[in-house]
């Protein structure tokens, strides 16, 4: 771990300003991902701005019948909230499918959106990685890629976004609210929040330097039946090989997003329109143009079969 300076921010705009004005600075909330990466020098911030005193720890109703989730609401509290469990069950299911109880107690809503990839080459500083060190190359391409991405990846990076919570938020059309150091606020649809890697895999999201997440809002409840199907080798405490977040309406229409396959939660609206035709129709469209490796080609049929299980449950 490299030495760094540390401050505890007292208000959000000042926090954003502190990060924007200090090259190499980062926010820290729960620290469940950042500290691990700092210990192995995958992350080497020069300055940490701790946002834990900023509040942002409430879940409130919005004027249009949705929910505003403070950026610092813990994963545990979010998953356990009665309104979330009743009206946005896909979100609760996704959260409790991730990490462990201890980590969820500490991890924040904003931090979860910002967690970094789990590509093993990203984690090993001896290996080339464009995400860790821009321009150094990608050791994962041609290497061990069973966990890695099958679509939306690039010649620079084939990593995935590893989270579960964001996949559920994607089917719910969540919106990420931010503030910057000038006090400027912005509302970013989650569809646009995570970037595809392209030539700049070092940039995970569209956030500008110093831009601070203050809340995630959910629109009015969708109704329907909610599913989070997470496929993994062991029963708990493992990243998704493939996950499916879905909200299915009584008429068989609905929404679906996939996790573990791409740089961001993978939802193709034109594909989910095909839900009434069955899983294969949806995934054929959603994964058109996929570029899997030999190691992870199984994720394509797996996505179809995982979605088929959701559709079957919705009809049961």
């Amino acid at each position: 771990m490299k030495s760094f300076t540390y401050e505890r921010a007292k208000d959000p705009v000042a926090a954003a300003r502190a990060v924007a004005g200090h090259p190499g600075a980062k926010f820290i909330a729960g620290g469940t991902n950042l500290l691990d990466l700092m210990k192995i020098e995958v992350e080497t911030p020069t300055h940490l701005v701790d946002v834990q005193d900023l509040g942002f720890d409430r879940i409130e109703k919005t004027g249009d019948g949705g929910l505003r989730i403070g950026a610092l609401v813990t994963n545990t509290d979010l998953a356990a909230d009665d309104r979330v469990r009743r009206d946005y069950a896909v979100l609760t299911r996704a959260i409790v499918a991730g990490a462990s109880g201890q980590l969820r107690n500490k991890a924040s809503t904003a931090g979860n959106l910002l967690q970094r990839t789990r590509c093993p080459y990203f984690y090993d500083t001896n290996m080339a990685c464009n995400k860790r060190k821009p321009g150094s190359g990608c050791a994962a391409i041609g290497g061990y890629s069973r966990q890695l991405g099958v679509i939306g990846v690039s010649n620079s990076c084939i990593a995935t976004f590893p989270g579960d919570m964001a996949v559920a938020m994607r089917v719910l059309d969540a919106v990420v609210e931010t503030v910057d150091g000038t006090g400027q606020r912005r509302a970013i649809p989650i569809a646009d929040f995570h970037r595809l890697w392209g030539d700049h895999p070092e940039q995970d999201t569209v956030l500008k330097p110093g831009e601070l997440i203050t809340a995630v809002t959910l629109p009015r409840p969708l109704g329907g039946r909610h599913y989070y199907e997470k496929v993994r080798d062991r029963a708990s405490y493992a990243y998704a090989l493939v996950s499916v977040a879905a909200v299915i309406q009584p008429d068989g229409t609905g929404r679906v997003a996939f996790g573990g396959v791409a740089p961001r939660p993978w939802r193709v609206e034109a594909a989910e329109a095909l839900l009434p035709q069955g899983a294969a129709a949806v995934t054929a469209r959603a994964f058109a143009g996929a570029t899997p490796t030999k190691d992870n080609a199984f994720k394509l049929p797996l996505a179809t079969r995982a979605l088929a299980s959701v559709i079957a449950q919705s009809k049961a």
């Binding site: 789990r118 966990q147 062991r234 029963a235 708990s236 405490y237 493992a238 990243y239």
Partner: peptide
């Protein structure tokens, strides 16, 4: 994280 051994749920 990536060399998986069984957890209680297994």
């Amino acid at each position: 994280a990536l060399y998986e051994v069984p957890v209680h749920a297994d």
